[in-house]
Amino acid sequence: MKDRVRVGVVGTGGWARSLHLPALTSHPRAEVVALCGRNQAHAESVAQQYAIPRVFTDYRTMIEQADLQAIVVVTPDALHYPMTMDALDVGLHVLCEKPLALTASQAKAMYDKAEAVGVKHMVLFTSRWLPPYRYIRQLIDTGYLGRCYHCQLQYVGEYGRRPDYAWRFDQHQSTGILGDLGAHLIDLAHWYVGDIARVSAHLATFVDRPGPDGQLLAAANDTATVLLEFVNGAQGLIHVTAVAHVRGRGQDQHIALYGEGATMELDLVDGRINLQGSRQDEEHFHTLDVPDELWGGVDLTQGFIRRVNEYVVTEPVADRAFIDAIIADQPVAPNFYDGYKVQQVIDAALASHAHGCWIPVA
């Protein structure tokens, strides 16, 4: 059993600063010894904030010189594959942001190599850890839903409405909103219902934006609608967009599961949780209260967003679960295989849109 884990973080953007670094630097058995960012001055400022002793602008130099045991990759999607593969070359444990890669073939190579090297590997599908989603899975496991007939998963935001360059909508850097928000919902569909057999997708790009050179960008999708057919016969619908006007609410989410024995509906709107259910022998829907114990030691008097922010940096989830798994030599979930399964669906959805037909999930 390791005493402490020496960690390097690649990326200094919003998610690194708001989630990964607070979670890692507050873990008593994680030692963040290096930070890598493209902008030296910005990286040094972030490192100073979190008392990280060494700063690099090239992740390969960090891997060579920082004596790491684990690396956390929080970068644009196109960099996930090369950074992860280089880290695996020297036997580092890897936590990678979602989506795992740009293609299923890349994701499969990452998974295969991580398994061959024998390290811990995690992909950050944060919904898996959040109490409302965990409680739905618990209810499914107890038989509340019965056989699932149909699921609907929606995630809408407005961060793509401004016509500015953003790597998330650059075809060379990402798979668009399908990979950004859609990856979360695809993973939940797998987790709640099962493997997906085939998809039919329609993608759209509503906002034109410039590229880094000022010319019109070959933009990735900012809206996606995907029909799902599961191996077990269930049907599903995923809808994601970054261009919905939800002013002041940030991002809205809706999940509905319709089964043989019951229906469950979760709405996260304006920072409020509303989980309701109705069994087939009940006349009305009623609130399904998420058990307080799922939140651990989090202050439950605060709003949902603040509660989540505290939860992911204090409880044994996400980055902290990654560190715990390394120390105790325990399995990690969700791992690169889960990321690969999601990437297969993303690939199939992109192909479906291009060809205008249903596409099997390979």
Rank of each mutant, 00 (worst) to 15 (best):
V7T: 09
G8H: 00
W15C: 00
R17W: 01
L19P: 01
L19R: 13
H20F: 11
H20P: 09
L21E: 11
L24Q: 09
H27N: 00
P28Y: 00
E31F: 03
H42D: 06
H42E: 10
E44H: 08
S45H: 15
S45E: 15
A47D: 12
T57H: 11
Y59N: 08
R60Q: 04
I63M: 14
I71M: 06
V72D: 13
V73N: 12
V73T: 13
T75D: 06
D77T: 12
L79S: 05
Y81E: 12
D86A: 15
L88S: 05
G91I: 05
L92A: 03
V94S: 03
V94R: 06
L100Y: 05
A101M: 02
T103D: 14
A114W: 02
G118E: 03
M122K: 08
V123H: 06
S127A: 05
P131F: 07
P131Q: 12
Y135P: 12
I136E: 12
R137I: 05
Q138F: 10
L139W: 00
G143C: 09
L145S: 03
Q152M: 12
L153K: 02
L153M: 08
Y155W: 15
E158N: 13
Y159D: 15
R161W: 06
F169Q: 07
Q173L: 04
S174T: 13
I177W: 01
G179A: 03
A183D: 02
A183H: 09
H184V: 01
H190M: 05
D195H: 14
I196W: 14
A197Q: 13
S200I: 00
L203K: 07
A204P: 00
T205V: 14
F206G: 08
F206W: 03
D213E: 08
G214V: 10
G214M: 07
A220F: 00
T225R: 08
V231M: 09
V231C: 12
L237C: 11
A242N: 15
V246H: 06
H254A: 02
T263A: 10
L266D: 04
L266G: 06
N274W: 11
N274V: 07
Q276C: 05
G277I: 01
Q280E: 09
H286Q: 14
D292W: 05
D292K: 12
V298G: 03
L300C: 03
T301E: 13
G303M: 05
G303T: 04
G303D: 13
R306D: 11
R306G: 15
E315Y: 09
P316A: 02
F322N: 02
I323W: 10
D324S: 05
I327Q: 10
D329L: 05
D329N: 11
P334V: 01
N335S: 10
F336A: 01
Y337H: 10
A349P: 02
A351L: 14
C357K: 15
W358A: 11
V361W: 01
